[in-house]
Structures are given as structure tokens and as C-alpha cells.
Design a protein around this nucleic acid. Structure first.
Lengths: 340, 340
DNA sequence: TTGTATGCGTTATCAT
DNA sequence: ATGATAACGCATACAA
């Protein structure tokens, strides 16, 4: 049976209150008693009991705020499901979860939403725009005692406690590995990314090229274009790419705009069998795979991203200590038609 | 803020004890009060608080026993890690986890270990041998009030509460889907299974053939042999298969014995590039992939199997109600060299 | 049948 | 600085 504060107090002959003060570093304890209690706690291997903690913490009622850009992106509906599931589980512990979504990627909108939510939040979870103003606001909130976590995308040069999301570089490596297997190692490759300026997208390209250059000498990289994460632009970019490089037989879809790109392939190269690998699972992914356009897609566990981010924040609030790791990396999952 | 028993008792003007009796169906309550309490509880949407429950339950100290066959199977080391992790998390709730491993698949050994562990267990988790004697013992324990769960492999015709493990049929389907992609849909296929008598192995074959017959008309299924989950036997079976059917260019490794089979391919068809898909992640999987022998392997989340089985048993013990679902199915994960 | 009291482990408050 | 005590939500032994 686990050691408790009560047992420690009995063993050391001091009151429970004093043991609590020592173990939680609240001060106002004489050095001798402090040493005594610490040594006894050490001996019996004391670990705080989560159920007791939770019960006592109910009076305080933490609030965890989640700020997600953007609305209308189907990827995030799964993230939100994860947030909700974590909320459900944490309900017992008196934790309030506040979700706020934003449309589009507007820096000032994000910053002001952060300010507003930060007013009364114990922790803030967001997918930050990679902009100095956002980093600055993160630091400001952190100084005010709000624990900040990033989810899905990270941001540098700031005091966020932990990033919860995928390893984009690895995702790109996997995409290339899959295309290597699908093509037998011989391919004329076109890449469609969201934006070369978005860090995650760039990292996927880097990962892809890393494997390509080291493992697939017979891959020829012909063209890269942007979709701006938009189906219409994706369609147009793909059309242009296929016109400029008709020999392309392999496409790496590193970001959103997947449906538009696939429609372009279907329209301008009907009957031609390209090899296509995409990212994430959008509503059209199933039919595109069924149609044999996309052969594999790589998912980044959106549900787990939302779920784990909230739980990480909660655990950190409960224990008083920040997370052990600076990153919580979710898996990149390879999906084909049979396990979509 | 969540409603509590105390609040319900105040709202309905009865004592906390009576509310408890109603909500937990302990009887000895007058019909009027019962109705009253139920309606109020309904209105406020009462849900028992897990932390409070856990704290109160500490006096009882449940014990969850885990019985795993077999020793020396690297697959199960991850399952055990999952069990240990769950144990760590549940330590706070006064739950004791007892792990017992067995060597090999001996029915009478398993049955007698079940009997022994069942003596003082609130729940028993095991990977059952598919034998009537085991099913019978499961029922006997169930009658004695021990909740029984199956993990990794299931068994029919008995009162186990829930199966935690993978969908073998789906795993087989995925394997065929991957080989379809790798081969471009044209292949001469040989299958190596563990034993045609082991349910999971058979289901994988069925899943494989399901996809093959419906989707890959140009797959030719030439031969199936057994490895008995053993590398030496796998080597020999593969050798014989490749001798009898030299045109085989694609191999589906549905069970253990993977290393032996691959060594046989390497020895007898040096330089030939076969397409091979296997299951699980054994210590040699990495090097076999590196060598280009195995192209993909399908994993069944062994850690999650151990972890979730224990947590399921715990939740069920805590809530007093059996699990909602009869099955907790973990994902089949496609792994290639880049995400192994 | 119904109500009351106590304890689980932790934390906060109030005395001393 | 230290100790005693109540409270969190639930379960239960005991009293009425």
C-alpha cells in the first residue's frame, strides 16, 4: 500500500499540515523538521495520491482554454473531438474547458483572442501562427502565470511549455518511403505544398527530399507548386504543373487542397495511373482512394492531438510541475483503402 | 459544476444515505422516495465523481490478475509494458496488479494457473488458448464473481466480459492491400501462416483472400504453409515453398517465424526482389527492412492491448457495470522503414 | 425504511 | 512555526 501524508506525519511525529508544507514547498517550516520530514518521505517513497489531490482541488476549479484557428478546416473537427473527450474525463476534477475557434490565420485576431482568453485561464492551448507578435503574447501570458501549450503547429523563440503534434519531417520521409515502394523506386515527381512559408509544410518537403536523395536515386524531382491549402488553387496549380511537366507520374500532396489537385489529375490525365500520396483524412479521401487516385494518405492523429494537449495541461496544473518533455509527438499513420 | 449526492439529498430532502441506496440500487427504499430521488438525479444530470469513488474504494483494494502465455515471445514484452503503465496509473486507486507469465501453450497449465490466480482476483485478464477447457474455466471463474477479459486473442462460447485486441480479419485485408500497391496488382503469392488452427491466423488469411478475390484478379495464390510460429520451421517451410513454386514473387507472412522465412528467401533466392509483408515488430524487423527483404509490416499496438485491458477491467470494477462493448479493437498500423 | 457518522488523501483555514 | 480541523464526493457501518 502506498504511503500517505498521514502516515508520514505519524512516523515523523509532526502534524499533517507540516508535512504538507514541506512536501509542497510552502515554507514556514523549521529546517530540522523539514529535513526530518523529507528523509522520512524519501524512505517510504511517498507519491501524492491523485484521487485525493483531485478531490481537494475541486474547490479551486481550473480553467483550460483552447484557441483554435481555423474554422472550416475539417482536420480540426477531430482535434476538437479530442478536446471534448478530455473535457469529459476531467469533468470529475472540477476542470472547465473553454473552446474558442477563429476563422483564418489573422495574427492580430489571434493575439487579441489570446489576450481575452488569458484573462481567466490557468492554461491556454493554441495552434499558433508563426509570427513574432504571437510569440511575444505567449511570453506575456506565461509571465502572468498562464501555462501555454502549442498544438498541431509549433512556434519558436517563446516560453510555451510543450508542443503537442506530429513530426512533420518524419511525415515527409514516410511519404517518400511509400512512394518509393509504390513506384518501385522509379518516378518523375511533382510536389504540391500548401505554402513554402509554413514551417510544417516546409519540414515535410525536407523530409521527403531527405529520403529521396539518400534512398531513391531514380526519383526525378521535377516541380513544386503551392495550393495555399485551397482546393481551387490546388486544382489550378496542379493543372499548370501537369501541363508544364507532362512526364510527371508521381505526386506528393504535402498539404491541403488535396481534392482540387486530384480533380485536376482526373480531368487532365484521364485514365493515366499516377502514384499519389497525400496527408490527412478529409471527407473526400475515401472516394479518391476508391477511385484509385490516391493510394495512401498519412494521418497525424488529430483526435490524440486535442486529447493529449488538454490532459497534458491538466496534469501539469495538478502536479504543479511543468511537463517533463518539451514535445509530445503523435504518430504519423499510414492509411490505405483497407484501413482508412 | 457537477451535481453531487449531497446536493441531490438537499434538493430532495432525504438523506445522503438514501440517495446512495437509490442510485446504486441497494434496495430498502420506499417507492415514493425512490421516484423522487431518481427524478431529481435525472434533472441535475448526476454522474458519480470518479475521484470520490476512487478514494472511498481504497479500503477495498481490488486486485487485477494478468495471465499471459507465452514467455519468450518478444511481442508480449510490449503488452507487459502496457500492463505496467496502467498499473502505475492505477496505483493511486488502491489497485493491485498481479502479472503471471507462462511458457508455451499448454492447456492444463493455463487452466491451473487460472484457478490459482482466480483465488483472490477481482478481475482476470488472459490470452486464452482456444480450447473448451479454458472456456469452461472462464465460466467457472465468472460464476465465482471474477470478471474475465481476453487480450490479444479471443475465445468463443464463454462469458468473458470483453476482448481487447486487434481485428485479425482487417489485418489480413490491409496486408493484401499493401501487397496490391507494392506489386501493381500482379503477383504470384505464397502465404506463410503460424497454424491454420489458430483462429487469429486463419482470420488474417480470410481477410487477405477477401481483398485478393474482390480487388486483385491478377493475384495468383499458389501455396500456403505453416511456420508454427517458429523460425526454424519457418525457414524450412519457406524453403520448400520456394522450391515447389519457384515463380512465387510475393509472400504474405501472417504470423511469427518471420526471421526464418526471410532467411530462407535470402538463401535460396539471393538477389531476387520479392515483395514481402509481415506482421508485428520483432527485433529483427528493422534489419530485414533495411535489407529490403520486408517492405511493410503490420503492427497491432501491443502496448495499447496491455494498457487498455487493465484500464477496462479497472473501470468496470469501479463502476460496478461491465464494459459497454464486448470488444475493444486496437488499430492495425502499417509500418515501413521510415516509421518503424 | 431512513438517517447519521466516519474515513479514504489532500489541501486550506483557522488557531495557537 | 506548528497543529488541529473541516472540506472535497462517495461508500458503508451503525443507529434509530
Amino acid at each position: 500500500m502506498m504511503a500517505t501524508i498521514k502516515q508520514i506525519s505519524e512516523l515523523s511525529g509532526v502534524s499533517r499540515g507540516t508535512v504538507d508544507r514541506v512536501l509542497n514547498g510552502r515554507g514556514h517550516v523549521s529546517p530540522e523538521k523539514e529535513r526530518l520530514v523529507r528523509s522520512i518521505a524519501e524512505q517510504v517513497g511517498y507519491t501524492p495520491n491523485r484521487a485525493g489531490k483531485a478531490l481537494a482541488a475541486r474547490k479551486k476549479s481550473y480553467s483550460i482554454c483552447v484557441l483554435l484557428a481555423s474554422e472550416g478546416n475539417p482536420f480540426f473537427s477531430e482535434v476538437i473531438r479530442g478536446v471534448r473527450e478530455a473535457e469529459r474525463e476531467l469533468h470529475d476534477y472540477g476542470v472547465k474547458v473553454v473552446l474558442r475557434t477563429l476563422k483564418g490565420y489573422d495574427v492580430s485576431a489571434q493575439v487579441s483572442a489570446m489576450e481575452e482568453l488569458g484573462k481567466d485561464a490557468s492554461a491556454l492551448i493554441l495552434n499558433p501562427i508563426n509570427d513574432p507578435a504571437v510569440a511575444e503574447k505567449i511570453n506575456a501570458l506565461s509571465d502572468r502565470g498562464v501555462q501555454v501549450y502549442t498544438v498541431n503547429t509549433d512556434i519558436g523563440d517563446c516560453r510555451r511549455l510543450c508542443y503537442v503534434g506530429s513530426d512533420y519531417f518524419e511525415g515527409g520521409r514516410i511519404a517518400c518511403g511509400m512512394l518509393g515502394l509504390l513506384t518501385g523506386g522509379v518516378a518523375n515527381v511533382g510536389i504540391l505544398t500548401g505554402s513554402v512559408h509554413i514551417l510544417g509544410h516546409k519540414q515535410r518537403i525536407d523530409g521527403f527530399l531527405d529520403v529521396m536523395y539518400s534512398k531513391y536515386p531514380r526519383f526525378r524531382f521535377l516541380s513544386i507548386m503551392e495550393t495555399e491549402d485551397d482546393d481551387m488553387i490546388g486544382f489550378e496549380s496542379t493543372r499548370k504543373m501537369l501541363t508544364d511537366f507532362p512526364e510527371i507520374d508521381t505526386i506528393f500532396l504535402a498539404a491541403a487542397g488535396v481534392y482540387g489537385a486530384c480533380r485536376a489529375v482526373q480531368s487532365f490525365l484521364p485514365g493515366r495511373k499516377l502514384h499519389i500520396v497525400s496527408f490527412d483524412h478529409i471527407p473526400q479521401t475515401g472516394e479518391l482512394m476508391q477511385a484509385g487516385l490516391i493510394h495512401a494518405t498519412i494521418c497525424q492523429q488529430p483526435f490524440a492531438q486535442g486529447y493529449e494537449a488538454v490532459k497534458l495541461a491538466f496534469n501539469s496544473l495538478m502536479s504543479g510541475a511543468p511537463p517533463q518533455e518539451q514535445q509530445y509527438i503523435v504518430k504519423n499513420e499510414i492509411r490505405i483503402l483497407e484501413n482508412l
